[in-house]
Write a protein that binds this DNA or RNA. Structure first.
Lengths: 205, 205
DNA sequence: CAACCTCTTGACCGATTCGGTTATTAGTGC
DNA sequence: GCACTAATAACCGAATCGGTCAAGAGGTTG
């Protein structure tokens, strides 16, 4: 793998993106090294030169994604003491911004949750653990509900927002092009509308 | 294919579900006839006995799904002159009920939209056309907005509900078990909350 | 120019799997 | 026991699988 690290960053990300895309799309067993090599515009032999084996490459990707998520997580933890809607918005924004440069990480991560191949089953925990941590961080807090006209609506609304985020992810999964700014704009408008209708008057700054 | 129609209905649906699941999960090229045969608990030779070739099986599935969607569509068109939220709810309910017996149709249909194999590319239109028709039917109407405290919120709220539905679909895609009633309950509660907060007082019956 | 080194890859390996065929079996009615 | 049918085990050539290796290509030293 030191062979791989010696490459230029551009070449590395091209290869990683190709691998993330193929594994994300086909799953571990159905994705072939040849698929990845073609997508990365290199030879199949080079993939083995860099990573040794298919399994090693997959595990490398798991750890690679883990590091990226850790990076997001830290930044997000900094500004976590705000309003519920602001919190959701900023964390989504950070998440989206990070994935802007790494467009295939999202579908790879979600594919990991469906992976069943015994070859890599033991290794999946590397990523699943990390993604759980990420989700738990932006959980609903107690005093969030107080701002709602009907405090009991806070939980469902939060769930609806998570659901919508999943909907966005599903809608653009596998699409080649993806206008992040437009989607975030859309999401922001939706959040504003929800806030306006659910919050007590006094919390509508 | 007359050979296939001669089977018992139970066996037929077992085979179709296996095929829908495999094609839906792996896509046309990566799904092998062997995968399908194993999932259907029959021999590979039987699959060819029934459908002739891989391509014929795939096209049969496209037409099979088209018929099912047509069935839903007709029923849904009958009671289309109600309140926006009721309309979304009942159409979702009908859709869900139909898919309760055919658990793999949903992921198959969404996989068709991502299919790129030249072998079947021409045939995809069989289904894509039909699913478009289905979506267009439950579109927002003009007088729906009048019931909203802020009429301009109607469009976004409708979009949010579509997004949430996609989120539900994504969340349970590929899951073996899926408690439809719980999900529909959840969805219904969310709709009730939205209506309560977005509608003018006079329309809250 | 020759000798050397690094990186990339075309060609190749045995094994497996592919879509598809066929010959044999197992089951059923008479 | 016999004929007919439906299912499959065994098989086909071709392709692809994960993985290896030796032959270049390109650059750096003498």
């Amino acid at each position: 793998m030191d062979k791989f690290l010696a490459l230029t960053e551009e070449k590395r990300t091209t290869i990683l993106n190709a691998a993330l895309q193929c594994f994300g799309k086909f799953g571990y067993e159905k994705a072939s090294i040849n698929d990845i090599a073609v997508a990365a515009h290199i030879s199949k032999a080079s993939v083995f030169q860099y990573f040794g084996s298919k399994k090693h490459l997959y595990i490398y990707l798991l750890e690679y994604c883990k590091k990226i998520i850790e990076g997001i997580f830290d930044k997000e933890a900094l500004d976590s003491q705000t309003d519920l809607f602001d919190r959701i918005m900023t964390s989504s924004k950070i998440e989206m911004e990070s994935f802007k440069t790494q467009p295939f990480i999202l579908q790879f991560i979600s594919s990991v949750w469906e992976e069943t191949s015994p070859d890599v089953l033991d290794s999946l925990v590397i990523l699943t653990e990390e993604t759980c941590k990420f989700r738990n961080d932006m959980i609903l807090r107690e005093d969030d509900a107080l701002k709602f006209k009907n405090p009991e609506d806070a939980g469902p609304v939060f769930q609806m927002l998570l659901l919508m985020a999943e909907g966005y992810a599903a809608r653009y999964r596998g699409a080649d092009t993806f206008d992040f700014d437009t989607v975030m704009d859309d999401f922001q408008k939706n959040i504003a509308i929800l806030r306006k209708n659910f919050y007590k008057e006094e919390y509508l700054k």
